[in-house]
């Protein structure tokens, strides 16, 4: 977790401290250079950042500690320290509701929609970044403005359209994972395209023109030159698309049935029982969070690099 290893902005933007900074080595730590930030700044920083860290991490601590508590602990008044540690909730969660099935459904839906979203977004962003054509601006504006639509406005129409498609063509979109994949991949598309356009724009056009001269087709240039150069941006898009699909609740609650239910809906099964097994709820929450949080933390440096080069231009 050392800062210099974990977090590497691209070369050009690395190390932009506004004033000479104290390095970690022992002999320089105590010495204050004339340009060092004043004490008021250092204390403000310490206090504000500590408070923010407490705010951010308290729920995580509650989740972790409560998931290891015996049932009587979570049924009485809250305590910061568990009276005893037990792995029991982690075993019970799989029986109380069919968590494994929900987990598998979520995984299938999230992975497929992420892969599709990235492929579709790469093509679209390449077209907008590298070609000038009629309708280019119109397309970008339209796609971005879909971000504005309240989900509630097209929830029911989409539901009816999926049912209609099922009735006329026999392709079951309502209640199937396919329908959910289709929906989620479209949710992450606008942001993905937007971010990749910025990223592709930052890759010199000479690179893919050289590939074209060397006899690659336009797609060859895209796949062999532009995509490899845009890996941080593409990874950032993957993280975003996966998180979108893994966390969506509204459409999951309407578009799924018992066999295709995802974690977003399934997790509420613990709370609708007559007794709420809070230790199990916390254990299940932790288990479903692990894939996304782990992935996010592993790839977060790509996310900032991707955002810097892409979206925040």
């Amino acid at each position: 977790m050392d800062d210099t290893v974990r977090y590497q902005p691209p070369d050009a933007v690395r190390d932009r401290a506004p004033y000479p900074v104290r390095r970690g080595s022992r002999d320089t730590v105590r010495r204050r250079s004339p340009n060092a930030p004043p004490r008021s700044f250092l204390w403000t920083r310490r206090i504000v950042l500590t408070l923010l860290a407490v705010f951010a991490l308290t729920p995580v601590y509650v989740m972790l500690s409560s998931s290891l508590k015996p049932l009587k602990d979570v049924q009485g008044a809250f305590g910061w320290v568990p009276s005893a540690l037990t792995p029991r909730p982690y075993i019970d969660i799989w029986h109380t509701v069919p968590l494994a099935r929900y987990f598998l459904n979520s995984l299938i839906v999230a992975v497929s929609s992420t892969l599709c979203a990235v492929v579709v977004a790469v093509f679209a962003a390449y077209a907008i970044s590298r070609y000038r054509f009629t309708g280019r601006r119109f397309f970008s504006v339209t796609v971005l403005s879909t971000q504005m639509f309240p989900g509630i406005l097209f929830l029911l129409p989409l539901f009816l359209i999926f049912v209609g498609i099922g009735n006329t063509t026999g392709i079951a979109l309502y209640g199937s994972r396919g329908g959910l994949v289709l929906t989620y991949l479209t949710f992450s598309l606008p942001f993905a395209i937007w971010m990749l356009i910025g990223y592709f724009d930052s890759i010199p056009h000479d690179l893919d023109e050289a590939a074209l001269v060397d006899g690659c087709g336009p797609l060859g240039a895209l796949l062999r030159v532009v995509v490899p150069a845009a890996v941080p941006g593409i990874v950032a898009v993957c993280v975003y698309a996966f998180m979108t699909a893994w966390g969506e609740v509204l459409f999951a609650s309407v578009m799924t049935n018992d066999t295709t239910r995802t974690l977003a809906v399934g997790l509420q099964g613990y709370a609708t029982q007559t007794d709420v097994y809070w230790n199990q709820v916390m254990a299940a929450s932790l288990v479903v969070s692990v894939p996304v949080v782990a992935g996010f933390l592993l790839l977060q440096r790509y996310l900032v690099t991707g955002l810097t080069a892409g979206a925040v231009k």
Binding site: R6, Y7, V60, V62, V249, L267, L286
Partner: peptide, 22 residues
């Protein structure tokens, strides 16, 4: 700083239902 940045991003990374149920 790296550690703190990671800590700050956790609420964003947690799936909404898991976090809000907590």
């Amino acid at each position: 700083r790296g550690l703190l940045r990671t800590a700050f991003l956790i609420p964003y990374a947690l799936p909404v239902y898991a976090a809000v149920i907590t």
